[in-house]
Nucleic acid binder design. Structure first.
Length: 396
DNA sequence: GCATATGATTCCGA
DNA sequence: TCGGAATCATATGC
């Protein structure tokens, strides 16, 4: 820094000459040197008035340098005097030039800042999670559907969905509120600083580029705060998501009604317990579970039934009886809902049972009663013929 | 706490 | 891609 010497007065200090050499930065004042004046005009330090002008400049600089040591009133008065000084415009332009040069070099060092990859990642994630960006009905819903479709987890609960959506929505709200606050604060602070600089530009050279640079610095600072906000938001979403997925990963038994519907279908199609895609969809709807859960259930059921037919015989009888009773009731009143209680259970695959297909050998169609053969699928150990060719194997 | 039931997952073959 | 089989992980009943 400048080694400031004690200053005894405001006027030109003879002991310091013109003061130009006393300041290291004054080397940059070349533009006012005669050999740098292209017009050759006897300028600021030309031969005629040069000496006097130099004294003037030295005088102004001296005053500038001592201005901070003075009281506010004194300083204001001095400031006014400086502003009115006849040399002020010339000195001002010189300072502007210096600032422009130093500003350029500073800019070169600061510009071309690449976008922070971490910020990009955070932005992308927030966008993908539906936290940032426009609120599409998607946002949370999309995340939920993505979560449910990515794995075959038990998405049975719209309750969990709404819970997840609600929490995500909360995060989203907080995020946007905070973001808005930061943006507002940033904008206010920027305006404030710009006003200050504009105010200062009346007494010292402040180029528009300098203001731009200052604004950029402020924006960078606020953007780092925003990054932190985005980071915490991402963490919150990840925690919520992991909790949500963990909760969904937990196995839950199907409702009694769902199990009944599935069992009814299974035992009424024991000869060929392979529901078609449509049947699976219908069953899924009936049980409020997914098609893949229906598939899982039938897969498990077939295996476990085959492994231990004896154990399931009782269950089979039970469902046979139930269905028989249901069928009897339906005979009396054709529109009476079946045992599932829905009244709309009209699966194509279950038509032989529920739509009154004549039973083979006088028994309930498709049922294994005690001592009966178990049909082909258990013995063949291979998937049976596809639905459509199944109507011939009702002999179980 | 243990045995059993049950839904989900994974691997493999057709 | 579907289904069988084995297995895992959790729920449930005692």
């Amino acid at each position: 820094m400048l080694q400031q010497q004690p200053i005894t007065g405001n006027g030109p200090n003879p002991s310091r000459g013109l003061g130009l050499n006393a300041h290291p930065g004054m080397h940059s004042l070349n533009p006012i040197h005669p050999q740098h004046r292209p017009d050759g005009e006897p300028g600021l330090d030309g031969t005629e008035n040069g000496h006097e002008n130099r004294r003037d400049i030295g005088d102004i600089l001296q005053q500038i340098m001592t201005i901070t040591d003075q009281s506010l009133d004194e300083a204001q008065a001095k400031k006014h005097a400086l502003n009115c000084h006849r040399m002020k415009p010339a000195l001002f332009s010189v300072l502007c030039e210096i600032k422009e040069k130093t500003g350029l070099s500073m800019r070169n060092a600061q510009e071309e800042e690449p976008q922070d990859p971490q910020l990009v990642r955070l932005d992308n994630m927030l966008l993908a999670e539906g936290v940032a960006g426009p609120e599409k009905g998607g946002g949370a819903a999309a995340a939920v559907s993505a979560a449910t479709s990515s794995g075959s987890m038990s998405p049975d609960s719209s309750l969990e969905h709404s819970d997840y959506k609600q929490k995500l929505s909360q995060i989203r709200t907080i995020y946007h509120t905070e973001l808005e606050k930061y943006e507002q604060a940033c904008s206010e602070f920027t305006t404030h600083v710009m006003n200050l600089l504009r105010e200062q530009s009346r007494t010292r050279p402040v180029s528009p580029r300098e203001i731009e640079r200052m604004v950029a610095i402020i924006h960078r600072k606020f953007s780092s705060i925003q990054t932190q906000l985005k980071q915490s938001t991402c963490e919150a979403v990840m925690i919520l998501r992991s909790r949500f997925l963990d909760a969904r990963r937990k196995r839950r038994n199907f409702s009694k009604q769902a199990t009944e519907v599935l069992n009814e279908y299974f035992y009424s199609h024991l000869s060929n317990p392979y529901p078609s895609e449509e049947a699976k969809e219908e069953l899924a709807k009936q049980c409020s579970i997914t098609v893949s859960q229906v598939s899982n259930w039938f897969g498990n059921k077939r295996i476990r039934y085959k492994k231990n037919i004896g154990k399931f015989q009782e269950e089979a009888n039970l469902y046979a009886m139930k269905t028989a009773m249901g069928a009897t009731q339906r005979e009396g009143s054709p529109h009476t809902p079946n045992s599932t209680g829905s009244g709309s259970f009209s699966l194509s695959g279950s038509a032989d049972l529920f739509l009154g297909v004549p039973p083979v050998n006088g028994e309930q169609p498709g049922y294994h009663m005690g001592g009966q053969t178990n049909g082909n699928w258990q013995e063949q150990n291979t998937p049976p013929s596809p639905p459509g060719s199944e109507h011939s194997d009702n002999s179980d």
